[in-house]
């Protein structure tokens, strides 16, 4: 952990919140998001993929789009160390997945019609 013994060096103070995004990164992000929205629309609504394969396509494109937005819109990559925001996000996502998958698993045998 980089420690600033005096603790008062001003340059150390978090400009972590400055958004460093450029027009280019926003445009790339936007285009990628559009593509990742159109792919599942075309593939699933036209029945190019079906059943489990369709679900996989849907979820993969959704997750990819999430990642795109994190990187190109929310500038998660530019966070300074220590990366508290990233750590908090990962932990939060682990819990979200636990809630969703755990509920599905536990409720499998408890379903009501």
């Amino acid at each position: 952990m980089a420690q600033h013994p005096t603790g008062h060096s001003h340059d150390a103070h978090g400009d972590s919140h400055e958004s460093h995004g450029s027009l280019k990164s926003y445009v790339i992000g936007f285009v990628l998001s559009l593509v990742l929205t159109i792919i599942p629309l075309v593939a699933v609504l036209n029945d190019i993929v079906e059943g489990t394969a369709a679900r996989v396509v849907l979820l993969v494109t959704a997750v990819l789009q999430f990642v795109v937005q994190l990187f190109f819109f929310m500038h998660l990559r530019e966070e300074k160390k220590p990366r508290w925001n990233l750590m908090a996000l990962i932990l939060g996502l682990v819990i979200v997945l636990t809630i969703v998958i755990g509920s599905i698993w536990i409720m499998t045998y408890n379903a009501v019609a």
């Binding site: 929205t37 599942p40 629309l41 699933v44 609504l45 079906e50 369709a54 679900r55 849907l58 979820l59 494109t61 959704a62 789009q65 999430f66 937005q69 994190l70 819109f73 929310m74």
Partner: peptide, 21 residues
């Protein structure tokens, strides 16, 4: 706002797309 867009992506995918497929 970006966050709400991300949530919508999952609403769109899980509720709507998986609902109609």
């Amino acid at each position: 706002w970006h966050f709400l867009d991300v949530v919508w992506i999952f609403v769109f995918t899980i509720v709507y797309m998986m609902g109609v497929m």
